[in-house]
Each structure stands twice: as structure tokens, then as C-alpha cells.
Design a protein around this nucleic acid. Structure first.
Lengths: 154, 154
DNA sequence: GAGGCAAGTAAAGCTGGTTTACTTGGAGTG
DNA sequence: CACTCCAAGTAAACCAGCTTTACTTGCCTC
């Protein structure tokens, strides 16, 4: 009887690895009281981390329409993770910045993810894996410009 | 100026690799005339490949409700990729089996994916990467039973 | 001060699922 | 044999998270 894990297609292995790591990551964050956030919110927090963005800029980073970004910002504002301010460049622009609550989430999420990576490191050569993934990404994206946003594709 | 690809988080690298490989795979299948199928349909075809399944069994394989599986089967039946037959075990059961059209798709998709892997093999050590992903999956799933279905998590 | 552009907002629509509720064929059981 | 029960399948309403379409508004330019 053969081990099904051993005969993985590359594509299936990538998808399932991502799913399992992300699911465990989310499970731990939920246990820490962050059930009100989805993965995409953490992704948005990273984009907003350094000084904030306008909603249209955030939309570009997330690969969604500005309306979808606006809805997400409304939700995050209600939940106390972001606030809107007048934009220094004026116009109708508004600068969306993280609150302290979101900054704390970023710190906790970062530590949680690194702890998970350390645990995996006992069985898997994480730096080597990361290098191979970086090479894979560079190969696929070669000459096609900057990296696209992470989006659901399944 | 540092290369952003080099400092990838493991999680981000897994997600983006999956996205890029899958997007390229889908792009090639679309170019071959399969614009009417999403990735999940190919995943369903693989589950149905060896003798077919009931819709409830397929639902379990895909990790969705039996109603969602039923809707997908309706759609695939309309498009000529599956057909329903009386089930040998009787009851209300109906056996969903692939048509020749779907079997041809499986052959084409397999060849397309392997061609893509061969191309990537010029720059990336695909067997080594596959092994590391298998180890990662086994580590995360250790003692938690069989592998879960591949599902959208983003 | 007229027009245009880009940011933002509003509302409707679409997709792909879930939830709730029902139908139905074939057991098992007295 | 009649009754009950179970599991498969189906139907319809609902829902989340987006997109599309359409509008508002602040500033810049001429």
C-alpha cells in the first residue's frame, strides 16, 4: 500500500500546504481572540502598515475594486482596526491608517506565524523550502513585472 | 535595494506559488478550449475518475455540502462532462460518471500540467520541492487523520 | 467659471456556496 | 405486512463577498 502523500502533484502539494499552514495560523489567531478577522484583513494590515494608504491604493494592493476595498475599510473601521483621516495631498483623498489595535494584531500575528515556522522547522528545512518557492515564483513571473496580489484562485 | 522575493514569508510564498502555478495552468487549459471549467471541476473529475461516485460521496471529497455538489453535477451534466445512472446498490442513489469528454479533459490537463512542471524543472528542483511539501503536509496533518479536501481558504 | 479628472460612495447584481425543509426508495422490526 | 426510520437526493431561500454601473465631489487647468 503506497503512501498517497509521497506521490503528490506539485500543484496539489502547493495548494494543500498553503491551506494547512494558513488554517493552522488562523486557528491560533482565533484562539487568541481574533475570530473577527479573515486572512485578507491581515494582508491589508501589512499593506497599510507603513503610513497608511488611500482606499484606491489599498484596492490595488489587494487586487480588488476600489468599492470592495471601501467596504472592507468600512468594516475594519467599525471593528476599530483602522481610521480615516484627511489626506495631506488634499482632494477627496482620505488616508486610511491602522489603529493601535491593528498594530498589536500585526505584532501578535507575526510572532504566531514565526512560532509556527519554528515548529515546522523541526521536521522541514524551512529556509530551503522558502528559497525554492522564491525561485519558483521568480521563474513564473520572469519578465511579467512585479508580483501580483495574493488572491483566491480555487 | 533588497530583492523582495528573497525575504518571503513561508506562508506568502506557498500562497503565491500556488496561485501562479494554478493561474498558468488554467491559462493554458483555457487556450485549449476549456474556458467553461474552473479548477474545482478538474478536481471533481479526478475524484470521479475511477468508476464514479454518488453526489453525496463527491460532496465529501470536495468538502462541500451535498447540495453544492448536486448543483455542480447539474452544471457539468448540462455541459456534457458527466452523466447520472442508476446505482448498483439501489436506493435513491445515482452514480455520477465521467463522459468521454471529461476523460479527454483529464488526459489533456494531465499532459498540460506535466509539461508545465517540466518547464519549471529547468530552474527549480521539482522533485525536491515536492518532497519538502510532502514532509510539510505530513508534519501538519500528523495524527489528524486523512488529508482534507483542497478548499479555498483565502 | 467651465470642463475634466480622479477619489470616493451608493446601490444593484452576480456567483458560488450554506441552511432549512421536503421527498423518496429501501431497509429493519414488531 | 404495516410502520417507522434512515440516508440520498432535491428544492428554495438565504448569504457573503465580491463586481458593475452610476453618481458625487474636490481640485486643477485652461
Amino acid at each position: 500500500m503506497e503512501d498517497p502523500v509521497e506521490r503528490l502533484e506539485l500543484l496539489f502539494g502547493l495548494g494543500l500546504s498553503f491551506q494547512l499552514v494558513l488554517t493552522e495560523f488562523v486557528r491560533r489567531l482565533d484562539a487568541l481572540g481574533y475570530e473577527d478577522l479573515r486572512p485578507v484583513h491581515g494582508y491589508a494590515f501589512q499593506a497599510l502598515r507603513w503610513g497608511g494608504l488611500t482606499s484606491t491604493e489599498l484596492a490595488g494592493r489587494l487586487g480588488v475594486t476600489k468599492q470592495a476595498a471601501g467596504q472592507m475599510i468600512d468594516e475594519l473601521e467599525r471593528k476599530g482596526y483602522v481610521s480615516r483621516h484627511p489626506h495631506p495631498d488634499g482632494g477627496r483623498r482620505r488616508l486610511v491608517v491602522l489603529t493601535d489595535k491593528a498594530q498589536r494584531h500585526l505584532a501578535v500575528a507575526g510572532e504566531t506565524l514565526h512560532a509556527l515556522e519554528r515548529e515546522l522547522g523541526e521536521k522541514v528545512d524551512v529556509p530551503a523550502l522558502r528559497d525554492q518557492l522564491a525561485t519558483l515564483i521568480k521563474t513564473l513571473q520572469d519578465g511579467k513585472g512585479p508580483l501580483p496580489p495574493l488572491r483566491p484562485v480555487w
